[in-house]
Design a protein around this nucleic acid. Structure first.
Length: 199
DNA sequence: TTGTGTTTTATTGCCTCC
DNA sequence: GGAGGCAATAAAACACAA
């Protein structure tokens, strides 16, 4: 058989199924996506089609159904991904804000350290010049004012915070090291490093 | 009317199962 | 080895904007 004759025979046979035929096939597909030969033959007789046409219709229908299912699943996955990306971005910004606060606190702490050292120098100077000061120094009332004392307590608490921050700085992906949400952490399933959402 | 994109029907080739 | 399923593809039928 030549190609042209083959094409011609194809052209003559092709015909879209009627609405009723489609409806009946769809109904059957809902309960039985992979019908047995007997059911296909029964449907073919009922609808005036060749059994092969029915078989092919089910095959194509399964393919369409699978494709649509994949589209739905992709849509769900994409939606979840987008939500997570937004959450990540919010957390990243919050982290940056906290790091800036920590830097300010560090500066404050350094300043207070400097003031304390100055005070100690003043005390040394005062005791060497006037022995009467010794009594007052021992009482801690005169030379260490209340606000300085409170600052010392605060410094202990801050040291804990700083330790936590240093840990966080070490473990979190930061913009400086070139790591981004898209390329490094989220999509890298091969690395053994902790996932970003685990922090 | 026509060009173009989408949907539907059909074919082909390969694979798996019995 | 034959039957049936699936993926890839061809080609007809259809929808629709310009």
């Amino acid at each position: 058989m030549s190609t042209s004759i083959k094409k011609a025979s194809k052209n003559n046979n092709r015909k879209r199924f009627s609405d009723d035929q489609i409806k009946s096939l769809e109904t059957t597909f809902e309960t039985e996506a992979r019908p047995e030969l007997r059911l296909k033959q029964h449907l073919a007789n009922k609808l005036g089609l060749q059994p092969r046409q029915v078989a092919i219709w089910f095959q194509n229908k399964r393919a369409r159904s699978k494709s649509k299912q994949m589209e739905r699943e992709y849509s769900i996955l994409k939606s979840n991904y987008d939500k997570l990306a937004l959450q990540f971005e919010a957390l990243r910004k919050e982290n940056q804000t906290l790091l800036i606060q920590v830097q300010r606190l560090r500066k404050m702490a350094d300043k207070i350290d400097g003031e304390q050292n100055d005070n100690k120098n003043h005390i040394k100077l005062a005791t060497s010049e006037n022995p009467r000061f010794l009594v007052d120094i021992n009482s801690h009332e005169l030379c260490i004012p209340n606000d300085i004392s409170r600052k010392a307590d605060f410094l202990e608490e801050e040291a804990d915070v700083l330790n936590m921050v240093q840990l966080a700085e070490g473990s979190l992906a930061s913009p400086e090291n070139g790591c981004s949400f898209d390329s490094c952490t989220f999509l890298d399933n091969t690395s053994n490093s902790p996932q970003w959402w685990d922090f």
